[in-house]
């Protein structure tokens, strides 16, 4: 039987892949959005920042920020799940020095956001569930919450066109 890989090798490979996917997107950096990884599960983390405020009187997160946060979480989760097998098999090599050509990101066709309560001026979290991922199209549902996982402040559903394999 094949010996399992050392845990550090596995973690390093997965984290390098996640960084390669996320780090070169300017808009993700602009929002300050990061991704927390547990195995193959990703959680989008949006740390609070003054520039993300919409209504300063409440104050509340801008509705557009909420939409953007959920949409980016959906795209990265979708791309991540699409790359997962190649990351695990090692056929995509994400060594920091390596110049890996990543597949293009999925393209949003439509995105529908349901605003359940106002976004508070504090950190927000989001997790996406891929309801269907075909060769050409995918349908993704995303949930966003702040203090309590059970009290969503927004949820969304979107459709995406998948990139073609290079």
């Amino acid at each position: 039987m094949k010996r399992p890989e050392p845990v550090q090798v596995v973690k390093q490979r997965r984290d390098a892949a996640l960084h390669a996917l996320v780090d070169h997107v300017p808009y993700i950096k602009y929002l300050g959005l990061t991704f927390d990884r547990r195995g193959d599960e990703l959680t989008g983390v949006l740390p609070f920042d003054e520039k993300l405020i919409g209504n300063p009187m409440l104050p509340a997160l801008h509705g557009g920020v909420t939409a953007a946060f959920l949409e980016v979480t959906a795209i990265i989760t979708l791309s991540w799940s699409y790359l997962w097998e190649d990351i695990e098999s090692g056929s995509l090599d994400f060594d920091p020095g390596g110049d890996v050509r990543l597949p293009r990101l999925p393209k949003t066709v439509d995105f529908s956001v349901d605003y359940l309560r106002s976004g508070l001026p504090r950190d927000a979290y989001a997790r996406a569930r891929i309801n269907r991922a075909g060769r050409r199209y995918a349908s993704v549902h995303v949930e966003g919450w702040q203090d309590n996982r059970d009290k969503l402040f927004a949820q969304a559903t979107g459709h995406f066109v998948m990139p073609q394999r290079r």
Binding site: H24, V25, P26, Y27, Y30, L31, A68, V72, R104, L105
Partner: peptide, 17 residues
């Protein structure tokens, strides 16, 4: 605000805002 670094296209998120 670029969402696709290969094409330089603005992120859908910024359009949402």
């Amino acid at each position: 605000l670029v969402g696709d670094p290969e094409t330089g296209v603005i992120s859908g998120g910024a359009v949402s805002a």
